[in-house]
Amino acid sequence: MKAVTEAVYLPALFLTVALLGGLRVDDRLTFVPPPLFALVLGIMLFGVLVRGHVLAPERLMRASRLPIENLNGFAVILSTFFAATQIFNLVTPEAGLPFLLFNVFLFVLLLNTLAASPDRVSVLRSMAVITGAAFILKFIVLGALSSPGEGALKRVLLALLEGVTLGTLTQPPLHPAAGYLAFATLVLFLVGLAMLPARGRSVALIKSGE
């Protein structure tokens, strides 16, 4: 990996995700720190990245590297963890039953991914599906249910959810820019994950004829 990628691009990218992950746009800006459970999910995601060979910590920090190289590697590892935590802060609803359900849903999905020990490409696909699904549920489905208007999607959802007390599902209305900002943050995060130094495959050299 190039020095500039490790020292500049990756920390800048993940720190931007960490910044935007907690940003809530309303009539004023609010920076929401991650709830404790987001830290747990962040640790689990970090574990998934390492087990799935998306992130190879030994390529970022080891005894044979120079101290400045190790410091750059440490910055990448730390910023990746904070970005992972903030991604869950971003895609998890703010309160109520959806907050609980989303956290359980994400916890089980990450546990399943950890247990499966998938390869790098599968982990990246899995991350895109997990975060993408959570994004759709929070910013499109719950966003439509919580919006003050009477849109077509809201009417369809109300018909589907007949009998469910909406008070347990609705969230504070989202600012029109919130979804776009969240989408851009997710894309940045996934791009960052794809740029992380991966663990190389071990190659067995077998002489032909043996």
């Binding site: 020292a7 410091l71 910055a75």
Partner: peptide, 9 residues
Amino acid sequence: VRLTGLALA
């Protein structure tokens, strides 16, 4: 580059 990157981060 590495020093600058670390400082910026």
